[in-house]
Amino acid sequence: MSAATETESKSPSTGMRLGKVLWDQYSVIFAFVVLVALAAVLNEHFLDIGNITNVLRQVSIVGILSLGMTFVIILGGIDLSVGSVLAFSGTVIMAAQVTYELPIWLSIVLGLVAGALLGIINGFVITYGKITAFIATLAMMTIARSLALYYADAGAISGFDSSYSKIGNEYMAGIPIPVLIFGGIFILSYVVLEKTVFGRHIYAVGGNTQAARLSAISVFKVTILSYVICGITAAIGAVIETSRLNSISTSSSGHMYELDAIAAVIIGGTSLSGGRGRIVGTLFGVLILGVLSNIMNLLNISPYLQGVVKGLIIIAAVLLQKRD
């Protein structure tokens, strides 16, 4: 008998062990199912196709941001700037269309490039400057927002080409396009994090930077790329946000989105200390927040009180997932 088998056979029974594994991996899904069942009982209209579609559409922008956020949090970092990056990219997109009269596709490309660029800057400040992610992205949060505000004098830029609004408002195969985009990016994120070498490296750097470096992983590249991904998801969020109203409000677009995204990631079971977490968890974290605010609206609970519930859910989620 080796020491390894001794330590591993400590748990009382296979049944309990299986239960623990299931709970560790899927507790957020259980929580989601319970919440949906509760919502269905509380309000008969909750399960209407129209309502479900509505929930999904409402969560799609923050959902996309949360997927990018998952990358940097598993990496052991955080990105407080996504809300402002969304506003900045949105401003670039609308300015390209309105002021420079560029074609829609080009404005979108420019918006995505803007998001990626701010992500690169975040990554550089964190790696080269050796500044903690919290502070580096806090600075980016105020800078990106400030630039957007300055450009539009704190006002809104509205587009004139109504075909642009299609992205945010129309359906494909009965599903809102923003939801399809959210789904597509979810699958992509899943593949990158779970199935690629790069994804492994994100987990390794987040889990133990020293060991990752000594295993010949370029911590520098992995970090930069993760923040670029986060920046790009913010820019994709900007595309949907601007397209829904064919307008960007430099003062309110993306405001506080970073906190919702971080909340969804945490509810999804990703550890803020890095190295641990799953993108599937984030998906359900997003859905839990969406269903929660939807059911409270259906029950006519004051929107001002909904923050209390959200806050309690975050605490409960972390307590439930606490291990070791």
Partner: peptide, 16 residues
């Protein structure tokens, strides 16, 4: 401290 990523499983550590 520097050899293994303790959050990861055996397989992932081995092929890192």
């Amino acid at each position: 401290g520097t050899g293994l990523v303790m959050e990861m499983n055996l397989t992932r550590n081995m092929t890192l």
